[in-house]
């Protein structure tokens, strides 16, 4: 089943601002990272997926339903964690999440049970009976996640869940999101402007920029591109590059480094042999994985 599918999705706000332009993408269930700079159209896309905004043109399906026409049914099965502060300070987390569970259609007693379960899953225990106003940013983010989880959705839409968190808090939040996506069996769409964060936990990455799709693919397809060996010698970089090229090895220069595509283990021997023959001081030789960031970076004109 396709989790989310859009077809030529376009959203233009009054005043001529184009938030999404001809976006066509389809993703399977799992953990999906939606990355893009601020203003790339991530939040607009989420609002359209929730049926809060109607697209200007194009089509969209969420869980096989049309969120514009069938918004109530979509929202019953989706949990949403907004980016900004969303918690009334004088309610306790337990009361708030219970109340919002009821608004999602849970009977009162069930809502209360599931609220304390959800808060426990995000790591809030006794503090859930205290007013939210006194919580730290990390705890508030957890409450926001718990309220998205309380009605047992099939899909979570998380808008910048690590916003405002310190590095440890970010790691904990990402671990939690990963756990929800894998152990809880709930699909998650994580929005972020930080590619390095989401690529750690996602199965699928969707990158948008200026409302257009940059790339959407399974993360393994993005990272399984050939690995490279980075070679650094203290001197004679040019000679080594020429020698390696003569050995039919594809070589690229990257500052003081030589990047050589790793075909198999024999590549190591060839490089070491070349270095030894030229009698150069080898500084380092290590294997690098393609980072997803590089895949996107090479598409930007400034790097051309």
């Amino acid at each position: 089943m396709t989790l989310i599918a859009t077809e030529s999705l376009t959203k233009t706000y009054g005043g001529g601002v184009t938030a999404l332009a001809d976006l066509t993408v389809a993703v399977e269930p799992g953990i999906i990272g939606l990355v893009g700079a601020n203003g790339a159209g991530k939040s607009t896309l989420i609002k359209i997926l929730l049926g809060l905004l109607a697209p200007t043109s194009g089509r969209v399906r969420v869980l096989g339903l049309d969120p514009t026409a069938d918004s109530a049914r979509v929202r019953a099965r989706v949990g949403y964690m907004p980016e900004h502060d969303a918690l009334p300070p004088d309610l306790s987390a337990a009361e708030l999440v219970t109340h919002l569970g009821q608004i999602s259609g849970l009977p009162r007693t069930v809502a209360r049970e599931r609220a304390s379960e959800a808060l426990r899953h995000v790591g809030l225990y006794e503090e859930r009976y205290r007013p939210v106003g006194g919580y730290s940013t990390g705890m508030k983010q957890r409450v926001k996640l718990a309220q998205a989880l309380v009605h047992d959705p099939d899909l979570l839409l998380l808008d910048e869940p690590t916003n405002g968190l310190d590095p440890a808090g970010r790691d904990a939040m990402l671990a939690l999101v990963h756990r929800i996506g894998t152990e809880f069996g709930i699909s998650v769409l994580v929005c972020s402007h930080l590619l390095g964060e989401v690529e750690r936990i996602c199965d699928t990455l969707v990158a948008i920029d200026g409302g257009r799709l940059l790339r959407a693919d399974h993360i393994s397809a993005m990272t399984s591109a050939t690995d490279v060996l980075a070679v650094e010698v203290s001197e004679g970089t040019e000679e080594l590059a020429a020698r390696l090229a003569a050995l039919d090895l594809p070589v690229r220069r990257d500052g003081r480094l030589l990047l050589v595509e790793l075909a198999d283990d024999a590549t190591y021997d060839l490089i070491l042999g070349a270095v030894a023959e030229l009698d150069l001081p080898l500084h380092r030789l290590d294997q690098r994985r393609h980072r997803v960031a590089e895949l996107f970076a090479t598409r930007e004109p400034s790097h051309a």
Partner: peptide, 11 residues
């Protein structure tokens, strides 16, 4: 408090 998005993202 910005809680309204939590209401309107529900059915």
């Amino acid at each position: 408090s910005g809680v309204l998005p939590l209401y309107f993202s529900r059915p």
